[in-house]
Design a binder for these strands. Structure first.
Length: 252
DNA sequence: ATGCCTATTGTGAATAGA
């Protein structure tokens, strides 16, 4: 079973690239973030055989799960704060695997209320995915975590000091998820430094100065089945790309 | 450190991203 995650930075702006990519790769499940619309363009993907569950929002945020197989028990918000109106979390069961599409808050500027919002959101995520472990089933939490886990996950750690993506609180909260028993799938298979999933639009792609912030966290039952995890840089090299590129995980 | 670019809303310039 192949599951991919991709922050597309607007599904409408990315429609040609996304349709090309999904036809070329045919993942069983594709988790999308930042669809940036209230209404997902479902028809185009349905005609390729994909079922779609999503929670949209005007202009900002928005997450989706596209699946070649039926989805069960969809939830469309991260529990823990009914007043949180950002569309940043959706979860479903596909072929016995619990999958989530996560768009974790950026958190910048750190001096604003956005940073405590990010940390509170990570606390809610911790509480929720701790509960998922009790199901003792494979869980794959994919998405844009907006966290650079370690120095080797960026080109120049000094450039990121003090940034919400690299602050000790953010990295600590990500590490806490791992300490619950969730495995960073890409890192487990690729210990080498300088693998990236995001490059800004200011020339960092050309210089290959990126950051690794899109991740799959796997429950023990999913990690036992982990055979492959890769970053597909091809969509980032195209015309009018997203600033993120897909990560694909394979479970036996 | 900031925002060189991109996207959205909506039709000009502000907001957000990371």
């Amino acid at each position: 079973m192949r599951i991919a995650t991709w922050n597309v930075n607007s599904i409408r702006a990315r429609l040609p690239i996304a349709l090309d990519w999904i036809q070329a790769q045919r993942p069983d499940v594709l988790l999308l973030q930042e669809i940036k619309t209230l209404e997902f363009p479902e028809m185009e993907f349905a005609s390729l055989g994909y079922q779609i569950a999503y929670v949209g929002q005007k202009s900002y945020n928005g997450v989706a799960i596209l699946s070649l197989h039926p989805m069960q028990d969809v939830i469309k918000a991260l529990p823990g704060d009914p007043a949180d109106d950002h569309s940043r979390y959706i979860e479903a069961t596909v072929e016995g695997v619990r999958v989530a599409s996560i768009y974790l808050p950026n958190g910048n500027p750190v001096a604003s209320d956005k940073f405590p919002y990010k940390l509170r959101w990570m606390d809610r995520l911790y509480a929720h995915v701790e509960g998922l472990l009790e199901r003792e089933m494979p869980v794959a939490l994919g998405g844009d975590y907006n966290v650079i886990p370690e120095p080797k996950d960026c080109y120049d750690p000094r450039a990121w000091e003090g940034d919400a993506l690299y602050r000790p609180e953010s990295r600590g909260a990500f590490r806490a998820l791992q300490h619950l028993g969730y495995v960073d799938a890409f890192r487990a298979l690729h210990p080498q430094p300088h693998y990236y999933t995001f490059w800004d639009y200011f020339g960092n792609w050309e210089r290959d100065q990126g950051i690794r912030i899109d991740h799959f966290l796997l429950s023990p039952q999913a990690a036992d089945r982990l055979t492959e995890c890769s970053i597909d840089r091809e969509p980032r090299a195209r015309e009018k790309p997203s600033d993120h590129t897909p990560v694909i995980v394979t479970l036996s």
